[in-house]
Write a protein that binds this DNA or RNA. Structure first.
Lengths: 341, 341
DNA sequence: GCTAGCACTCGACGCTAGCGAGTGCTAACA
DNA sequence: TGTTAGCACTCGCTAGCGTCGAGTGCTAGC
């Protein structure tokens, strides 16, 4: 649909604009774009590209800037994704070289690397635990009124909460309770724990433990793990360095959006496998209509676990970001393999 | 040192400026300050107050604004701290009414309440665990190369990390290891765990477990809990709503400062018992020289556990903030008493 | 000791002119 | 027919200038 020359010009404009954040004029394309036509010719093509919807003019007598559609075409057909520099790659590698023994550490670290290298805001969704299953359940009494319940999943994730022990319940019986729960619930997916507790474990408990009814509620609470993704943010203040966001109100909207975990998760929900790019107005949320959101899911054994993403101005360095996300999502998967075996 | 009238005028100026964020003129004090002298008289006093260092003039022919010293005097002698409204108090109470079974939930919640009510940025340091002691140690094998180590403290705090198991170590021996560790280390303060592991436990392990040397390093790692405070932030974007921070660069500095956990901890380190107010240039850190940082420590049984704080412009609503921090720090202590018995 | 009056200061705002980057169009050229 | 040179035109940006007004400091009078 576009001629070769139009593609070259569009490419040059996007590249230039990504670099400079200023509307691109025909002259600078002619000179530095590596195309070699006169400004006048470029202008004619630019007028055509604008009519086709790929470019916009902030006002007459300013240069052109890419429209959402222009960026879209650029991302789909023109961008060169091999722009990951040597030092950056080394930086990523060196970060992952340190052996981390907490899953959260890896995730959080990844978020930090992302925002540091790109100067955008990184958003990382930790692995969801919906499909994980119970490995071990444990109760540690703190005093005669409270105990810590610990749930270990098959992926080595540990959840803990404090439950209260009813006054009529004998603390020394807890061990029995734990034994029965482990025997009955080991291997059960987290989201089925509570149902199973009532349907199958209650009866068994009744056979061996006095006053077991009084502690059932506490046990149910103990098994109610939040199966949601955890969200890690890094570099939110990077937004302030972007010239398009020198308007405080706009930044405020974006930062508030970032604070709203549920909204954020919804935006990530649509992220299917692989890398996804949502440019400007393609985003459902008004607050980030002037941003691009690029996400990549990481998976172990073909099973998608979570998502990493970058939020920046539409004028993003797509080539670099895409390759970085690609590399990093694979590295995270590698790092997590330890837990997911 | 100050006459009664000067105090009243200073008080009126600070109150007015806190409300309006604009330099206060003699006329508005005379009219709305509730003092009842003519502007000219007020002007004379203002000139004196300026000479004494309590007021500043952004430029000739603008009104006065309080200097750091002015705020200091206001906070020390003039502020009325009983300004916590009914609905706000109700809001705090209702938040704490919900029973929370994770310590972190309470802390994080508190941070959210603080920033929501005040529209400033809240910073909450979770309880440090330096002086906590080991209650129970647990190892859960994930596969034959890795296991999850779980440390439960006497306060019900749970730490976990994944350790690797050396190839020559028999997984079935782990139970024995756990037994010995619990027998030897229960009640030992967290910061002494590693030392004790080598000095006392190693030998005992050697008597009962083959190849115990190979797993010592992993065990040491498992016991190396980070005893630092955890930092919870909330409402960082509130900074953007303050008129004095409409300059993007200034905000950037502050947000970056907030991101730097170590620096932040240092600023909190000096926070002794009770409520502490650091106004503008009283802060050590350049980045927040235009801010005030108000901190309050929360303690159980007279033992200080952690700190909550608010960061805002020097033009802060000190009365409200101080009373709110006072209430909240006590509520947090109450909420945590469950764990600290 | 307080206040009315007044000259003075200085930032904020609005207006205008000039500049310059960039365009669109036309005509000439290969 | 595609490309280019030339040129008039547009329009945001900036600097300069005058006006306005809030607020001051000072002086004189009550």
């Amino acid at each position: 649909m576009l001629t070769e020359r139009q593609r070259m010009i569009l490419n040059a404009i996007v590249d230039d604009y990504i670099r400079s954040a200023e509307p691109v004029g025909s002259r600078s394309i002619s000179k530095h774009g590596g195309i070699g036509f006169s400004p006048a010719t470029i202008r004619n093509e630019m007028a055509d590209l604008e009519e086709l919807g790929f470019l916009e003019q902030p006002h007459t007598s300013a240069g052109r800037i890419p429209s959402t559609q222009g960026y879209r075409y650029y991302v789909d057909h023109l961008v060169k994704v091999s722009q990951l520099g040597e030092e950056e790659l080394a930086r990523v590698r060196s970060h992952f070289a340190m052996r981390m023994n907490q899953m959260e550490q890896i995730i959080q670290h990844a978020a930090m690397i992302l925002s540091n290298i790109t100067n955008y805001t990184s958003i990382v969704l930790g692995p969801e635990m919906f499909s994980n299953s119970l490995k071990v359940f444990q109760l540690v009494p703190l005093n005669d009124r409270a105990a810590v319940a610990i749930v270990v999943t098959n992926t080595g994730h540990v959840e803990n909460r404090t439950i209260s022990i009813p006054p009529d319940f004998d603390v020394t019986e807890l061990e029995k309770v734990v034994g029965i729960l482990n025997a009955k619930l080991a291997g059960v997916p987290l989201h089925r724990l509570q149902a199973k507790l009532y349907s199958e474990v209650g009866e068994e408990l009744g056979r061996h433990v006095e006053h077991y009814e009084s502690i059932m509620d506490s046990l149910a609470k103990a098994l109610e793990t939040d199966q949601e993704h955890r969200v890690f943010l890094s570099g939110a203040s990077n937004m302030l360095t972007q010239p398009e966001f020198k308007d405080v109100d706009k930044v405020k909207m974006i930062l508030d959006w970032l604070d709203e975990t549920p909204t954020l998760m919804k935006a990530f929900a649509s992220a299917s496998a692989g890398i996804q790019v949502r440019i400007g107005t393609e985003n459902d949320d008004d607050a980030i209509r002037s941003c691009s959101l690029i996400t990549a899911s990481y998976s172990v054994d073909g099973k998608s676990l979570g998502t990493i993403g970058l939020l920046g101005p539409t004028r993003m360095d797509y080539g670099k970001v895409i390759s970085l996300l690609d590399v990093l999502s694979k590295d995270i998967a590698l790092g997590l393999a330890r837990w997911y075996k």
